[in-house]
Design a protein around this nucleic acid. Sequence first.
RNA 1: GCUCAAGUGGCGGAAUUGGUAGACGCGCUGGAUUCAAAAUCCAGUUCUUUCGGGAGUGUGGGUUCGAUUCCCACCUUGAGUACCA
Length: 940
Amino acid sequence: MQYNHQEIEKKWQDEWRKRETFKAENNSEKPKYYVLDMFPYPSGAGLHVGHPLGYIASDIYARYKRHKGFNVLHPQGYDSFGLPAEQYAIQTGQHPAKTTDENIKTYRRQLDQIGFSFDWSREVRTSNPEYYKWTQWVFIQLFNSCYCNEIDKARPISDLVAVFEKEGNANCNTVCDEDTPTFSAEEWNNFSEKEQQEILLKYRLTFLSDTEVNWCPALGTVLANDEIVNGVSERGGHPVIRKKMTQWSMRISAYAQRLLDGLDTIDWPQPLKDSQTNWIGRSQGAMVEFKIENSESKISVFTTRPDTIFGVSFMTLAPEHELVSEITTEAQKAEVEAYVEATAKRSERDRMADVKTISGAFTGAYAIHPFSGEKVQIWIGDYVLASYGTGAVMAVPCGDQRDYDFAKHFGIDIPNIFENVDISEAAHADKEGTVIANSDFLSGLKYKKALKLAIYELEKKGLGYGKINYRLRDAVFSRQRYWGEPFPVYYVDGMPQMIADQHLPIVLPEVEKYLPTEDGQPPLGNAEVWAWDTTTNSVVENSKIDHETIFPLELNTMPGWAGSSYYFNRYMDSNNSSEFASKEALDYWKQVDLYIGGSEHATGHLLYARFWQKFLFDMNLVPVDEFAKKLINQGMILGTSAIVYRITGTNKYVSKGLKDQYETDELRVDVNLVNNADEIDVEELKNWQPQFKDAEFLLDEGKYIVGREVEKMSKRWFNVVNPDDICEEYGADSLRLFEMFLGPLEQSKPWKTSGISGVYSFLKKLWKLYHSSLEGGQVGVTDAEPTKDELKTLHKTIKKVEEDIENFSFNTSVSTFMIAVNELTAQKCNKRAILEPLLILISPYAPHIAEELWEKLGNTESISEADFPVFDEKHLVESSKNYPISFNGKMRFTLELSLDLSKEEIETTVLAHEKTQAQLQGRTPKKVIVVPGKIVNIVG
RNA sequence: GCUCAAGUGGCGGAAUUGGUAGACGCGCUGGAUUCAAAAUCCAGUUCUUUCGGGAGUGUGGGUUCGAUUCCCACCUUGAGUACCA
């Protein structure tokens, strides 16, 4: 009987679906284990072989955990809001919901054919109203909360209102906007409703504000910082400019410290933690206030080096700083204005790319040094960023290279405040070991002491205070797009109002066009039925808006990361329509035990999701404040592009070996036309694209050999390999084994279809091993006692595979299986006691063939119900072993020694052997000393 | 620039409480089977050699009886980040 992967795989996929084999219950005697993949965005292109890598790994782990007696939750869903469906809609008029639905069907078919053990009864789709109802609900919870520094957690905004009514906000330690005014209880109570709402917006965890945003004109929308790469949009690579807009934001900065601290409690990859730490960017220092000569205004600066304050010889403001126009003197006005205008014109990208050119202008104004009272020039310069700290710096040219360069360039003084340090060539930025000099009360002190004393003196004199600054900005939450979650928000007199929970979801309205409106409104501005009737609590036609009972609804939608920031909680109880998950379900599953996904989400999804989880935890809505205990980043599978060489200016193509004889252009061609030996079928190529139809090909020994290039799998490089083709030809089990066999999970590696024949022939051998043990194709395994060698093979395999899975080294267990099958085939093993446990070991990796053979061995239950075999060391114990013997690390031989020899006996045996060796080689025997160790060590 | 990760045959990679480097697979070579091919099976495959051996895990040092593994310096590659005061 032949191994027919197509028949077997279809049979078991149907069977698993019918039997609901992988359905998880929300209560069980067994311990729980939650294995999650980052859910996919269902793109129109479908899956390529790179996508399932992480899913295969998590599936192996989930199946392994089931064998180990856990109640495993392993769900899957779709992150189905997103830009590509919307752009397709703009081009074709096709509703994004329809496109998305079709794409999901393709994804589901592709996922099913790989044989994943997902519990599909819990599927979520972020674009489903039943799902985004809860996204809107979380948004409302955030709106109704603020962050209290006193108890270091979020609390209801109503608590804050109570405080304001009683004592105003003077002593209120709650996170808020920097421009929040101070008021008394009396003032608060006298504020109008609108004024009160405006104040509260400065405290809410999601709030409206005029923010300078990253506006991408080509996409017609704003982008978050993590959606911008090298100054252009991550998607499409369009330029991004700064623009002021009224936007919803999330006050993630309130959680900066807890997001940092939480990293110590979770088992995530160090590089990922590092990049989150970097992104949050904590720096400890002080705020210092500088008075301005002949002015009421003051400049506050943030510095990490208050110990160097006596080295200040000038100050620099960002060109956008609000004091620039106020303090500039008549004489300098023209120069300063010209400079401000010039920098405004430069895009963010130019400014970033060009860090070497030093530019700036003197304002003519002077600040007063807080300690020495000396006059200090105030400059503006674009090396100071408006968006970090206060947008102003105290420049210490002797201690900071940028200040140094600026001072050198404009001929400003560079006072030296370090003992025995040469600053004629460059600034001295080292902290350790440096002694401060020429610094009044700080002179003679080292960095640590000087820092403390400087802050102490600043605070004592009321000139400043110690402060921790974070790079992490609040996250803009509004997108000018159609295909996203609508906000549950309407506007009364310009102030946002939340729609009550019981009226959710607010469903995305129909529009005729998916583009922004002509007057620049977001696409929802095209909707005709998009107003809120407060009497009926329903969405009604815009034409009815009267600003008395019927009000306009929010036109922006939520960003892509909204729906993905809590979905892991929703899976625990995804069909619950009255709560986002029941308390029982949340308390049972608690958090994700193993999360697998790409590292590209380090400062996006993974940071936002941690933020929401902490908020939900503060509000007692979830039981733990980190959503994923362990996380693994799977590497990317890269494509191996095929390149043909066209002789420049002609339609002639030369084989790779001949290309150096000509001047050629490189063109990528469909990788599927190339065979394992890098040879392309010229006839197929001619039919592939019209440009090759009449082309001439210069062959090398009758073959056209292509060049190869490893790069990201992408349609535009024609290097995409479709898993459908692989499953068709080799089967899902081969695909799964091969993807694991390619290399370490976390590493990026190129796909080369040629290698798959190895795992495919392994499966055929496995099939054969079981069939030669079955008499007449039926039951033939014997219940006879296995031999020592058979037991050794089995237990060695159990040990290795168990270790491999626990360490996520899935690549090496595939080798282990191959060795085991080869050994058992050689031993002609037909013992049930060996063959059954072996199948269980293999089943997480190659579940279909394992199920089929399991059934053939006479089992009626699914193999996924079987217990993982128990390793027994006694089968591996040997009586003797070959030991390496070395003399001075030079000469080596091996000697079989009994395991229970004493040290003296070993010495005698080795010496005897050495004597024989020496005699044979005609030399004098060396002295032998036994050095204790795992392996016997002998030194001459 | 800074942070992190990684450098092992023709290729993907294995081996790390320091102990026979190159498991396993691909590719390649030879053989068996076949009219032939595919498939399958067997043998070989780090380099070098005067067939005794010698060299060998990016480079140069160090620790050790012994280093792919530990330490120092350097080189290369990849990833992230970037005027963060």
